[in-house]
Design a protein around this nucleic acid. Structure first.
Length: 623
RNA sequence: GCGCUCGUAGCUCAGCUGGAUAGAGCGUCGGACUUCGAAUCCGUUGGUCGCCCGUUCGAAUCGGGCCGAGCGCGCCA
């Protein structure tokens, strides 16, 4: 491996500015080696890092190249750094090159380099940053997969949003993603739901651990009673086929809704989440895929009969204990289905399987991996994103709705409550999506409904949406009052304000952020990026005002048109450059918000100062 | 007991393949609007990165050991 100085074509397209810097450093290094009569072709050089700096005084990029390869040059890092500095100073890409600390090279880019970077953003527009990853994979992304025995709760919602955003990230980096919901329609839980509903209809007592205490079961019973009288009668007389049929219909109702219950699909849609494939556990059994998978394990000698049950010796593959696939009563375990399901997904030709699970299922990973290995399938293609708990707070206190607490509040309740409070349909989805992707998936999360309802700085999603609306307002005024359309080919030479250039540097980092976020399946990197971009622009905007400058001509000048000729046209050139720059920021913004599935409104209505609604009044409506 | 995840500011959390003086939001306190959206901005306050060793030019980051938290360890799903 030649290290980071040599990049693949895909990477170089993805990070043009950084790649440019890397190439110039490599060139300087090669020249220095040549000058010293060193032959570096034998053996790889240690890979140096080229990083964006955290502090402005360190310039735009910093590299440890002199420290990394100093030994090969047989000299001190600081000496090599000084030699490289001398060579790089002749390069017009850099405005300043400094040796710092133990041998870092700090590089400050010249304005022209920023202008080239900005031109790239403008040329790509809203598609900026979307570039194929090194490997373009066919990905099966399975998420939510909540049992269709009840409404979706907050914890499901987090998995839904994280899964959906990871899907968008993978799409944006050139992977082909199939989003799949695995419907557990064959297990005990479904049987229990059907028993509970039947019990309601037939006036029998609810089964042990049944669902009968829930209002939606009462509603479901009422709905089913009118529609399936014959089927219910057969079920009552112990007809198993009828019972299976009845269960299947109940699953459909849970997914598609019935009077008094919106249905899981509807809830997901309200959250902005859609699936390509709904696969059925029952179907895996129905057409023999489970049986065949278990037979394959048997043929491979992985199964033993013990205590009257059929066990898969996963311990031979690193699991803690062997796992039962067929119980002593002859029934299958959930694991048996899951073996077949994951085998099926790989059989369908996916390069990668990503499962999104609740963190409490983490112990399940080794056995699925063991199953794939035992079946001779590439277990390394299987990965899991674990989702931690969500607790819902209200003004700092655990939030209760009825008897439910935190995780057990339904998505619909939360969405409705926020939508009603803000008066904007979709604001609940925006708020939840933003919250759920702000933290990494495997960290516990607190959500405060009161903050999510606020249309103010306290609410992080509003802060970012406001930033987007503000950029749009500037572009709108530029067009309508100055006749300036953001021109991707604008002359950018007049763009010299340090804040403007540092924001260009941020824009040029967006492709790297997207690539990294997709690669690590960590949406929070996009959120963090958008937050800091917003901050940078808002800060610039206020500073400009303090400096008695504006992006657009002042209103007086707009009407007279005097701005067009001010300073011999230099002012107009600056305005045009800045408008193009605003457009670039807006586009990156829009791209980032689209990845999160959060609305990017072009304008936001100012809230009336008296819009505060007493929280108690909303509680009554929401329940 | 074993396994997984984690321990960073008063609170909620970032911190990329190890990099320079560890960051953000909220909270505290104090400031900034005649002019493109003040739904904003600036400053202030705040930390033995749980503890101890080790690896090296360099550790919040990697390794080991403790302490503490959550979860898992079903012929449940």
């Amino acid at each position: 491996m030649p290290g980071k100085l040599a990049r693949t074509p895909a990477e170089s397209r993805r990070t043009p500015v950084k790649h440019d810097v890397a190439a110039r450093i490599a060139k300087a290094l090669a020249e220095e080696a040549h000058a010293r009569g060193l032959d570096l072709s034998a053996g790889a050089l240690p890979a140096p890092s080229i990083d964006r700096t955290k502090k402005p005084e360190h310039g735009d990029f910093a590299t440890n190249v002199a420290m990394a390869v100093g030994k090969r040059f047989g000299c001190k890092p600081q000496e090599l750094a000084a030699a490289l500095k001398a060579r790089l100073e002749g390069d017009p890409t850099f405005e300043r090159v400094e040796v710092a600390g133990p041998g870092f090279l700090n590089l400050k880019l010249a304005p022209a380099a920023f202008h080239r970077a900005l031109a790239e953003v403008l040329a790509a527009g809203p598609l900026y940053g979307r570039a194929p990853a090194a490997s373009r994979e066919r990905v099966n992304l399975e998420f939510v997969s909540a049992n269709p025995t009840g409404p979706m709760h907050l914890a499901h919602g987090r998995g839904a949003v994280v899964g959906d955003v990871v899907g968008r990230l993978l799409d944006a980096t050139g992977h082909r993603v199939i989003r799949e919901y695995y419907v557990n329609d064959a297990g005990n839980q479904i049987k229990l739901l059907a028993d509970s509903v039947l019990a309601k209809i037939l006036g029998r007592p609810d089964p042990a651990d049944g669902y009968g205490a829930n209002q939606y079961v009462v509603d479901l019973a009422e709905h089913a009673k009118g529609k399936h009288a014959e089927l219910i009668a057969k079920c009552a007389s112990g007809d198993e086929r009828a019972f299976t049929d009845f269960s299947r219909r109940l699953v459909s109702y849970m997914l598609d809704g019935f009077p008094g219950f919106p249905g899981i699909r509807t809830t997901l849609r309200a959250l902005g989440v859609q699936f390509d494939v709904w696969s059925s556990e029952a179907a895996l059994h129905g057409d023999g895929r489970v049986e065949r998978a278990i037979d394959a394990l048997k043929d491979g000698g992985w199964l033993v009969e013990r205590d009257g049950a059929l066990q898969f010796e996963t311990t031979r593959l690193g699991d803690d204990k062997d796992r039962v696939v067929y119980k002593s009563d002859g029934g299958h375990t959930y694991f048996a289905s899951d073996i077949a399901y994951h085998k099926d997904k790989l059989d369908r030709g996916f390069d990668r399987l990503i499962d999104v699970w609740g963190a409490d299922h983490h112990g399940y990973i080794p056995r699925v991996r063991a199953a794939l290995t035992a079946l001779g399938l590439p277990a390394e293609r299987f990965e899991v994103i674990l989702i931690q708990m969500v607790s819902l707070m209200k003004n700092g206190e655990p939030y209760r709705m009825g008897k439910r607490l935190g995780n057990f509040i339904t998505i619909d309740e939360v969405l409705d409550e926020i939508d009603e409070a803000t008066g904007r349909k979709g604001s609940g989805s925006d708020a939840l999506r933003y919250y759920f992707t702000t933290r990494k998936a495997d960290a516990q999360l607190e959500i405060d409904v009161e903050i999510a309802k606020k249309q103010s700085l306290d609410n992080p999603v509003y802060y970012v949406q406001y930033g987007h609306a503000r950029l749009c307002a500037i572009l709108r005024k530029a067009q309508e009052e100055c006749g300036i359309a953001a021109d991707p080919g604008a002359d950018l030479a007049a763009l010299v304000h340090p804040d403007e250039l540092s924001i260009v540097a941020m824009l040029s980092a967006y492709p790297e952020t997207l690539a990294e976020s997709a690669k690590t399946r960590e949406p929070q990197k996009i959120v963090a990026y958008l937050t800091s971009l917003t901050q940078a622009f808002q800060s610039y905007y206020t500073r400009l005002k303090k400096e008695n400058d504006t992006i657009l001509p002042r209103s007086g000048e707009r009407e007279s048109g005097a701005w067009k000729t001010r300073d011999g046209g230099a002012f107009a050139a600056k305005v045009r450059a800045r408008v193009a720059w605003v457009r670039a920021i807006r586009d990156v913004y829009g791209a980032g918000l689209a990845l999160l599935g959060v609305a990017a409104p072009e304008r936001l209505d100012r809230p009336a100062p008296t819009a505060e609604v007493p929280a108690e009044a909303l509680d009554d409506e929401a329940t």
